[in-house]
């Protein structure tokens, strides 16, 4: 049923084309892009931003915006880390994920309450809670970089396979955390596509009043959504520190803007209602490849920011231009049809 015309209106193909072009450029400049170990390295770097982007995309689809997820992830993982260290816990890492997810849930619930029940503007609320959570982490918990408990350290050493670059003999390990990403993606896909809850998220983003009248529990869905983002952030926090076997409370802060940029780059409509997991992952992949290949391309460190800035501007510019073009085309075809 999907026609070619419909596909050309989506932004996924454009992002994919951009990724391919960029890959070819990197390959040409370094001869290193399509080596097994480079791809594994990229996949590894993708895990954390991709985990964040799933929740971020869902929030944008619902018509909101969330800038608090890095703060939630940091505080949740930090408190978890400290609890486990203090209790000399040496069991399974699942407990770490559970605690962190639980803390994320609580923090997300505050967002959800303020946004869903009090109907406060999402950007302002999450800016506020973000400030609150980071402040708590550094103030009340006087957080600083710390060791990780053995459970997390062991988890960090679990690797799925090792990719070797045949020409140079370099090896890269695929961390097991990629499984978490895959699981989250599958879960999010099922949630968004096959549950009323997921369709409700799209419905709210399309028209909130209509959603309410149709019988969607708008408050409940928003509550769920921000809780979900919180849980996801908590999990991401543990994934991050286990991959580094080192708990640095500030390592994730400031990621919100790049993640949002990646999500929008992937075709999610800033005003809500539209967005796909495929597009989101492509957007994140593009940003990840970009930020992890500046040396491979051979851009001097001093000029990397200029390059990233230019790519954000050009990338979003193309997407913006393309949606406007689509809108125009649609208006004209409607006129023609009438």
């Amino acid at each position: 049923m999907i026609s070619l015309g419909r596909i050309s209106k989506r932004s996924e193909p454009y992002v994919l084309a951009a990724i391919i072009l960029l890959s070819l450029l990197i390959q040409a400049r370094s001869g290193q892009f399509f080596s097994g170990n480079n791809l594994v390295d990229l996949a590894r770097s993708l895990i954390v931003p991709a985990l964040f982007s799933v929740g971020c995309m869902m929030v944008i689809v619902s018509g909101g915006i969330d800038v608090s997820f890095p703060a939630i992830a940091s505080l949740a993982m930090y408190v978890t880390d400290k609890i486990l260290l203090a209790s000399n816990y040496s069991g399974n890492v699942i407990l770490a994920y559970a605690i962190s997810a639980g803390l994320g849930l609580l923090m997300g619930a505050l967002n959800g309450f303020l946004i869903g029940f009090l109907r406060l503007p999402t950007l302002v609320v999450t800016l506020g809670t973000s400030s609150l959570y980071t402040g708590l982490m550094f103030g009340a918990f006087s957080a600083s970089a710390s060791d990780v408990p053995p459970a997390i350290a062991r988890h960090g050493k679990e690797i799925l396979f090792t990719a070797t670059n045949p020409t140079m003999g370099l090896t890269s390990n695929m961390p097991s955390q990629i499984l978490i990403l895959i699981a989250v993606l599958i879960l999010a896909f099922l949630l968004l596509r096959y549950t009323m809850l997921g369709r409700g998220i799209y419905a709210i983003g399309g028209d909130e009043t209509a959603a309410e009248r149709a019988g969607f529990n708008v408050r409940g869905i928003k509550m769920f959504l921000y809780c979900f983002v919180g849980v996801l952030a908590g999990i991401t926090g543990i994934a991050r520190i286990s991959m580094m076997t080192y708990a640095d409370p500030s390592t994730m802060l400031g990621m919100e803007m790049t993640v949002i940029a990646a999500v929008v780059l992937g075709g999610t409509r800033v005003t809500g209602g539209m967005g796909s997991l495929t597009g989101t992952i492509l957007g994140v992949a593009l940003m990840t490849i970009l930020s992890n290949s500046l040396i491979l391309i051979g851009i001097p460190t001093y000029w990397t920011r200029v390059f990233t800035g230019a790519v954000i501007i050009i990338g979003t510019g193309v997407t913006a231009h393309q949606t406007i073009a689509t809108r125009r085309r649609r208006a004209q075809s409607q006129k023609a049809a009438a």
């Binding site: 009323m196 369709r199 799209y202 419905a203 983003g205 399309g206 028209d207 009043t209 209509a210 959603a211 009248r213 149709a214 019988g215 969607f216 409509r269 809500g272 209602g273 539209m274």
Partner: peptide
Amino acid sequence: FSVFPNLTVMENLALNSEL
């Protein structure tokens, strides 16, 4: 009309009764 502009005709029709 309280329809969802971003969803398909099918979903607009079916969602309410499913709810």
